[in-house]
Nucleic acid binder design. Structure first.
Lengths: 239, 239
DNA sequence: TCAATAGTGTCTCTTAGACACTATGAA
DNA sequence: TTCATAGTGTCTAAGAGACACTATTGA
């Protein structure tokens, strides 16, 4: 049998297929630190551990559509910036069966984070930390610093997610997905510092962001401060 | 029925699953320009068009293992640097059935490219060009510049591949995957210029690469030149 | 006036580009 | 000696960090 004959007869429907899922890394900021939305696992496997919201991909459902559906159904978030992160397919990642999962990174504003927690009461916002090593899994913890054990390979997924976000924060527009429509330069810097975990130089940061052409001044200023109110900016796509 | 009851009864094996495949973007350099390995499609759909080497993922096969298997079986390449690129899952990307494909980027040295073409005679090395627009599909052509029509969404995949490679060329070690174990600084610069499609400043490039700590001098020099022979370097991982 | 933060001017340091220069081996 | 390329010294320009300074609001 030649390869052409083999291929003509080959019907992949005859072969067992891995299940295909999406998992969502929904990141927000709280108290100047990154948090991720996790749900408790009630059943085996990994009962008592904490897992990313996820779901299976329908046979007539786009990957992005599946991610959006999980965002609505499991995380109660009306909208979030979503981008594909990486696809995890290790044989042993789920002991029940072979599941390949396309992970998505989702970024939530403070309002979207609060809304998701209100709509999906079983979720909690867990503080996220990365080890010093350049790879290796991220760790989740309560606000008091008590570790939250992660289910499956979700620590690895979180590691990839936070590193990806750090890597593209400075040269891309993702940072604005964590801010409301109107924001001050200090808020923008706070977002960057929270994601990177380091302090940034104020004049340099302002120069850089203004030179990027991303910031449209509104002429309006924040209200209710007891000090000089900062100007409010709006994000605009670079032309 | 509560959500917990629904989930307890839910068996994804009862639902139809998308087929899962890997597609390989095997890039090399030829004549100072990027080329990609493509095979002709003999059957419908897209008969007469050119496609990336690919194959279905086995139920007990890792994603990376599937990519490696396709590399050996369909491209006859003994070894190549492989990294996961992006997962393509549009509903209409294959008219026969729903196929979700995890695309991998593979980088071939000149020797590996020649070996692959010798081992897999149906493949050809097609010149690769990107449109000026920041996204949009790449285009393949013969060495004479005649366009080669691409099958499925493989133009999109090639666009993502070349842009990803360009983006990480300068800050990562991927460039060395296109060079033999011993190489000159000029060869390294030629690789970067071919991928980026622009000329680079020689002193600045040398300084930058030497400062990165990636280059181990060997003390040896190239032979057979009719001019001053350049020093040969070896790649070493940064500590 | 003071406190607190917004926002800026300027110096320095690092790094990239430009460009010319020296070095080296073969014909 | 000439040719072609390897490899370097140095000037300049751009951008980031450091730091102090001015500006603006409410209390």
């Amino acid at each position: 049998m030649t390869e052409a004959e083999f291929l003509a007869r080959y019907d992949p429907a005859d072969y067992p297929r891995p299940a295909l899922a999406v998992d969502l890394v929904l990141l927000g900021l709280r108290g100047g630190r990154p948090v991720v939305l996790l749900g408790p696992r009630a059943q085996h496997p990994h009962a008592g551990r904490w897992a990313l919201p996820g779901g299976f991909v329908g046979i007539a459902e786009d990957l992005e559509a599946a991610a959006g559906r999980v965002l609505r159904e499991k995380a109660g978030a009306a909208q979030a910036y979503l981008e594909q992160l990486f696809t995890f397919g290790a044989l042993t990642r789920d002991p029940r069966m072979r599941i390949v999962s396309v992970a998505y990174l989702g970024l939530l504003t403070e309002a979207a984070l609060a809304e998701a927690l209100a709509q999906a009461p079983s979720l909690r916002a867990a503080a996220l930390t990365l080890p010093a090593a350049p790879d290796g899994p991220a760790e989740a913890a309560t606000e008091r610093g008590e570790g939250l054990p992660l289910a499956f390979d979700h620590g690895e997924i979180l590691g990839v997610a936070l590193r990806r976000l750090r890597g593209k924060l400075d040269y891309s527009e993702v940072g604005f997905a964590l801010l409301p429509p109107l924001f001050t330069l200090r808020q923008l810097q706070d977002v960057h510092e929270a994601i990177l975990g380091t302090a940034l130089n104020k004049p340099a940061f302002r120069r850089r962001m203004l030179d990027r052409g991303w910031l449209a001044p509104t002429g309006r200023h924040e209200a209710g401060t007891s000090y000089r109110p900062a100007e409010l900016f709006r994000f605009q796509k670079t032309p």
